[in-house]
Design a protein around this nucleic acid. Structure first.
Lengths: 226, 226
DNA sequence: CCTGATTTGTTGTAAATACAACAGAATTGT
DNA sequence: ACAATTCTGTTGTATTTACAACAAATCAGG
């Protein structure tokens, strides 16, 4: 079993799950959660489709790719996980605990696994932070849910134009202002909205020319016209 | 305060949250969760963007529409809720508890609200089913998460063809067979994949003609060709 | 069995999008 | 300051998709 370092703890302290807990508190929790720290070398698959999985993973170092293969064997990237990210909680919470994606380390990586069953049952040592942890886990899942719903909302729109307006409208709302800065560059935005970058770029300019919005780099402004 | 009827309990018993609990157990829980049953008349908005919301809703009767308005005031349907469905858990679990969508009763409806804070803190009466409820809530959120992720996976594909193959490939996997029946008709599938029905129908036939799959009504078969 | 309603497939056309290739702007590292 | 690299916008073309309108098939009820 690998030792959990002070550095690891610092990473955990930045995760939703252990936010604002002290090192001592976290170490107590890890004990209680039957934490296992594992290492995966570059380009090795650490979790496979069909694996039994009752634990959630937290990336400590490195980068993981979550992928899925279709009927014909074509692989698609679903998510990329970097230090601090949680993965597998959906499958760990599913009734049969069967993992339905592949997880591959694309660099040498360290991952911490926490046994979810231990989180759910009140632990015998009745550690003080148990409730906090449950609350944090629920919050993390709610937050993921929120992000997924938002993405679906944008991506479901039929045209590139409507996808852009849906996304920008939401960013404006977040900023509570018609002026706002988006955190994605053009390529990232195109990937997020599942459209072609150059076509999207052209559409943005059309929206600008029609006086619906204006932008300079990543700063946008929406005009209240109708 | 409206009375919770035996009929209401029967609906609750079919929800993920209270699955397999007895009437007595549920009534004890409801007390502990500060449950409020409310009535909404047809076409009234019962929750608004910006409302404070620390409770999750369960539909007992009627139909609700969850919608969102964009910057310019255009409204989009996000989800439809029918008896047994849970809603609002994402916002109830968010840090600031601010509701970001609108909920409208489109028929006369009855809704049960459960105060989420009560779920999270171990209740003073230490009711036996508290842990079960937390576990069920986590499972419900995981399950929603799973569905959202799946949808994103399909819908992110650039062409109608790839969306179809992604969806059908997954259904085949669920059925553990190259033969399977899908639970959606053509219009529903088109809506789910965010494409035009007739274009999708045409694409399905093209896939059939190319020998990639075959179908009869909602029964499909995928061919293992390359 | 018949009728009307619903679902599914078909086709042509207009519109939107992807794709490819490139030019200019901005950024980074030296 | 310069070169190399990345990012963004532009344009033309081929492809894909939406849309509309309709035909065929299927379904539901009387």
């Amino acid at each position: 079993m690998n030792q959990i370092t002070k550095n690891d703890i610092e990473i955990l302290q930045k995760t939703t799950l252990f936010l604002n807990m002290s090192e001592a508190e976290i170490r107590e929790m890890l004990d209680c959660l039957n934490a296992r720290k594992t290492t995966s070398l570059k380009n090795t698959m650490l979790l496979h489709y069909g694996d039994f999985c009752d634990s959630i993973g937290i990336v400590l170092h490195g980068t993981l790719h979550i992928t899925r293969e279709d009927f014909w064997g074509n692989s698609t990237l679903i998510a990329q996980c970097v230090p601090g990210d949680i993965f597998g909680e959906t499958y760990a919470m599913s009734p049969n605990h069967i993992f339905e994606v592949n997880v591959t380390a694309i660099t040498d990586s360290e991952i911490l696994f926490l046994q979810l069953g231990k989180i759910l049952s009140v632990c015998s040592t009745a550690c003080t932070f148990h409730n906090r942890l449950i609350q944090n886990l629920l919050q993390a899942m709610a937050s993921r849910n929120y992000l997924l719903s938002k993405k679906i909302e944008h991506i479901t729109k039929r045209s590139t134009r409507d996808k852009l307006l849906s996304y920008l409208s939401n960013e404006s709302r977040l900023a509570k202002s018609a002026d706002f800065t988006i955190p994605l560059n053009r390529q990232q935005l195109a990937d997020y909205l599942a459209v072609d970058r150059s076509a999207m770029s052209a559409e943005l300019c059309r929206l600008r020319d029609e006086g619906i919005l204006s932008f300079h780099k990543n700063e946008f402004h929406l005009y209240d016209v109708y």
